[in-house]
Amino acid sequence: MVAMVRRRLPEERARSMVSLAALFLFWILLSSALDPAHIAVGLAAAALVSRFSSDLLIRRDERIPSPKALLPYLSYLGHLAVEIVKANIHVARLVLDPRLPIAPSIVKFKTGLKGEVAKASLGNSITLTPGTLTIDIKGDTFYVHALTREAAEEVRAWHMEKRLKEVEDAA
């Protein structure tokens, strides 16, 4: 109850606004209707949920990234798409090769990324790209399962990590 009457800090307000926008967009999408009644109910529901549980969607220790990070982020997404297509062709070759030429290994490397979201993004990108799969992240150490020798060598100094670093620096 104390939280309800306490004055809210600016970043708390910003967090609440971002989650309100996200929840309202999701409502519009699911209801697929743009008449006033649907919009009013959606706004009310989104406002209620974001007022009391915006810290579930965006954690208290995460900052809202600045709009300057958008351009590097889009460039990152573009490169990620290319890498994903390459990864799929790579895996398809390995799977359909009758000799099954795999040489798996579990390697570790350290990252310079700081934020939890950035690290999680790097982990997911590693999983989606050629021949590598994140097993665990402990602090700044990544444990990666690699399908081939080349993939294991490549992931240690990976160009996508530099791109994520740029996004993090701009944010």
Binding site: P104, I106, V107, N124
Partner: peptide, 27 residues
């Protein structure tokens, strides 16, 4: 990928060994 990460970690910690052709196991 998040689900795969969760399964991989759970598999390793529940004692699932990588198969014998695995070259290196830093984890």
């Amino acid at each position: 990928p998040t689900a795969a990460h969760a399964i991989a970690k759970a598999a390793y910690l529940s004692g699932e060994k990588p198969y014998e052709g695995t070259l290196e196991d830093a984890y």
